[in-house]
């Protein structure tokens, strides 16, 4: 009997995912038809039409690039500092105690409060960098600290006995130990950095940013643009997240082949 799975069976998961997206669009379409007003709920077709044209408009790519580089810069800063501070706190318990109130504060204070406070301190153009950084920092810090705390004590003894120098300890023990924590932190941190960064831009309204486009769309009741820019942000953030995580995994793959 031929037990070769059919094309449908082979790609069952893909079909299910595509089906879920199509169903969501259908629900959206039904909702738009039920409301019957583009100002309140634009139809998927009108948003699609806008999407097809918006990327050809002057200034589109510079707007996306403006926001992209700010949020990515904030994310990378948060990642770097979170790695450094998390390592320091994992190595020296005193640092963990010193950092604790800051970590608790950053995690619990609403992002809108930070945005408004920071607007007093810095220009709106830099706001999304700082807010993204601030949101990513505690996530990476907590994960790095957790990874250090959960290291296998037996492996610590082994590197102690074999007197591995500092660089080799990082390479052979700490980086592999951090791998799942770092991937998880980056996955969560990337999503949050985009959400918080865009929120900062909407409140700060730096000129030439995606946030400004959202603000303008709100002011002019252009709901179709609002939906269009939302989709653009989702697509850019998801693409960057996938790309960054793939890069991280590739780097780990290279490391393990050393």
């Amino acid at each position: 009997m031929d037990r070769t799975p059919s094309f449908l069976q082979q790609h069952k998961q893909t079909f299910q995912r595509v089906g879920a997206v199509l169903l969501a669009i259908l629900v959206w379409q039904v909702l738009a038809m039920a409301v019957g007003h583009q100002l309140l709920v634009p139809s998927p077709l009108s948003v699609l039409e806008r999407l097809a044209g918006i990327w050809l408009e002057a200034g589109f790519w510079s707007t996306v690039w403006f926001t992209f580089r700010k949020i990515v810069a904030g994310f990378l800063l948060g990642l770097a500092l979170g790695l450094g501070l998390g390592s320091l706190a994992g190595r020296f318990p005193l640092f963990e105690i010193l950092f604790r109130p800051w970590a608790v504060m950053v995690k619990s204070v609403p992002v809108a409060s930070f945005i408004v406070i920071c607007l007093i301190w810095m220009s709106s153009a830099r706001l999304s960098i700082f807010i993204s950084f601030l949101m990513v920092l505690p996530i990476v810090y907590t994960n790095v600290l957790q990874s250090i705390r959960s290291v296998d004590r037996q492996m610590l003894e082994a590197v102690q006995i074999f007197r591995l120098p500092w660089a080799k300890r990082v390479l052979y023990l700490w980086l592999p130990q951090m791998k799942p924590y770092l991937i998880s932190a980056c996955s969560v941190g990337l999503g949050i950095s985009w959400k918080a960064g865009i929120a900062a831009e909407i409140i700060g309204i730096p000129s030439g940013s995606i946030g400004q486009m959202f603000y303008d769309a709100k002011v002019y009741f252009n709901t179709t643009d609002l939906f269009t820019w939302t989709i653009i942000v989702v697509v850019v953030s998801v693409l960057f997240e996938k790309g960054f995580l793939a890069l991280l995994k590739w780097l780990y793959g290279r490391l393990e082949k050393l």
């Binding site: 492996m155 052979y172 023990l173 592999p176």
Partner: peptide
Amino acid sequence: AVFQENRLFEDFSALSNLAA
């Protein structure tokens, strides 16, 4: 030492474990 457990760097190759 050889411990009761192997205590190797599991993600790395046999050669890398020696190079460490």
